[in-house]
C-alpha cells in the first residue's frame, strides 16, 4: 500500500533510506495522487535521496512556491475588490496557511481561493466580485438554487481574465449538516493580516479543517487535510481547542481528528473501530496512484451525502441529478 508508505515518509523522512526504485515510484505516485508531492518535497529537503528523485522534488517545490504566489495574489485581488465594503474578509485553508506563514502551508497544494464573510454581507460581496470581473461557473438553475438555499457558500465563481476560482463562504458547514458552527464568533475572533484580510484564530483553524474533513465530504484528499490538522494542532492550546470545538458542536470530530493525526503522523494513538474505518479509507491508494478498496470509498461517498441532507431531501436531490445525467465517478 503506497499511501501507507507516503504517511510513513511524512512522519519519518529518514525512513526513505531503505527504498528501492519501485518503492520510490510508488511513493511519488501516491504523493502526486494525494496532492502531497509538494509537502513531501519539503519534508525530504534535507534527506539524501537518489539522483533521479532530486529533480522531481525540486520541481515540486518550485510548483508549490508558484501556487503560493498565485494564491496570495488572488487574495490581494479579492481584498482590493471588497475593500470598500468594510467587512472582514477571512482567508480559509491553503491561502490562509500561506498568508500566515504556517507550517501547514509549506509545499501545500492550493486550489481555489476560499474566503469567509459575514452572512449579512453576502449579497454585497457577490455584487462587488462581479463588478471586479468574477463570473459564475455553473449555468444550471438547479445547482444555483441548491447552493443558495442549502449550502454554506455561493456557487463557485471564476475570474474572467485570471481564470482562478473563488468560493465565498458564510459559514463552514452546509446549512443541512447536523452541526451548526457559530460563524459570527469565528469572524469576530479572526486575526488581522492587514489590507482588510484576516485568518481564523489558531483554534478555529483546527475546527474548520476538522469540519471540512470529518463532518463534510467523502474524505477525498483526507491525507492532506489530516496533515494540515496535524500541524495546526501544534499551534494551539488544547483546552481552548476543546472549548472552541464544543461551542461549534464539533468536539467529537476534533477528538477523532486528534487521534487520527496522532496515529498516522505521530508515534501513535488508540483508535476506535470507526477511526480504523476512516484510516482504511485514507490509506486506500496503491503504488500506481490508483484508488483501492472501491466499496469502502463508495460507502464514504454515500455517507457524504447522508451527512449533508435528511433522507427525503437526499432522495429528491439524487433523483434530480440522475435525470440530468450525473453519475458518481
Amino acid at each position: 500500500m503506497s499511501a501507507a508508505l507516503l504517511v510513513r515518509t511524512l512522519r519519518d523522512p529518514a525512513s526513505v533510506a531503505g527504498l528501492d526504485a519501485s518503492g520510490w515510484n510508488g511513493l511519488i505516485a501516491a504523493a502526486r495522487a494525494e496532492r502531497l508531492i509538494g509537502t513531501l518535497a519539503f519534508r525530504l529537503a534535507d534527506v539524501a535521496v537518489p539522483p533521479a528523485v532530486m529533480p522531481i522534488l525540486s520541481d515540486a517545490r518550485a510548483d508549490a512556491a508558484r501556487e503560493a504566489r498565485q494564491a496570495l495574489w488572488e487574495a490581494d485581488r479579492a481584498a482590493q475588490a471588497l475593500g470598500a465594503l468594510g467587512v472582514r474578509v477571512v482567508l480559509l485553508k491553503g491561502t490562509a496557511y500561506a498568508a500566515a506563514g504556517l507550517k501547514a502551508g509549506q509545499g501545500r497544494f492550493i486550489g481555489d481561493l476560499d474566503i469567509l464573510v459575514p452572512v449579512e454581507a453576502m449579497a454585497a460581496v457577490e455584487q462587488a466580485l462581479i463588478a471586479a470581473g468574477w463570473e459564475w461557473v455553473k449555468d444550471d438553475p438547479y445547482d444555483d438554487a441548491y447552493y443558495r438555499q442549502w449550502m454554506h457558500e455561493l456557487p463557485p465563481m471564476i475570474h474572467a481574465t485570471r481564470d482562478r476560482m473563488i468560493d465565498v463562504h458564510h459559514t463552514i458547514l452546509p446549512l443541512t449538516a447536523r452541526q451548526t458552527p457559530d460563524a459570527a464568533a469565528m469572524i469576530a475572533d479572526a486575526v488581522p493580516l492587514g489590507d482588510g484580510l484576516y485568518v481564523l484564530s489558531s483554534e478555529d483553524r483546527v475546527v474548520h479543517a476538522v469540519a471540512h474533513m470529518l463532518a463534510d465530504g467523502d474524505l477525498q484528499g483526507g491525507l492532506r487535510n489530516l496533515w494540515d490538522i496535524h500541524h495546526l494542532l501544534a499551534d494551539t492550546d488544547p483546552d481552548i481547542v476543546i472549548a472552541r470545538a464544543a461551542r461549534h458542536g464539533l468536539l467529537p470530530h476534533v477528538q477523532q481528528a486528534r487521534r487520527l493525526a496522532a496515529a498516522l503522523y505521530s508515534p501513535g494513538a488508540r483508535l476506535t473501530l470507526w477511526d480504523r474505518l476512516i484510516r482504511a479509507r485514507l490509506l486506500a491508494r496503491d503504488g500506481w496512484g490508483r484508488e483501492t478498496r472501491k466499496a469502502l470509498i463508495f460507502a464514504f461517498f454515500l455517507r457524504s451525502h447522508w451527512l449533508r441532507m435528511p433522507p427525503l431531501m437526499l432522495a429528491r436531490h439524487l433523483w434530480t441529478k440522475w435525470r440530468k445525467g450525473h453519475r458518481p465517478s
Binding site: 526504485a21 520510490w24 515510484n25 511519488i28 502526486r32 533521479a52 528523485v53 522531481i56 500506481w288 496512484g289
Partner: peptide, 12 residues
C-alpha cells in the same frame, strides 16, 4: 528494468 521514473502513465 529498475529505474525511478519521472512520470507514471496508466492505461486502465
Amino acid at each position: 528494468i529498475d529505474a525511478i521514473a519521472d512520470f507514471t502513465v496508466r492505461l486502465q
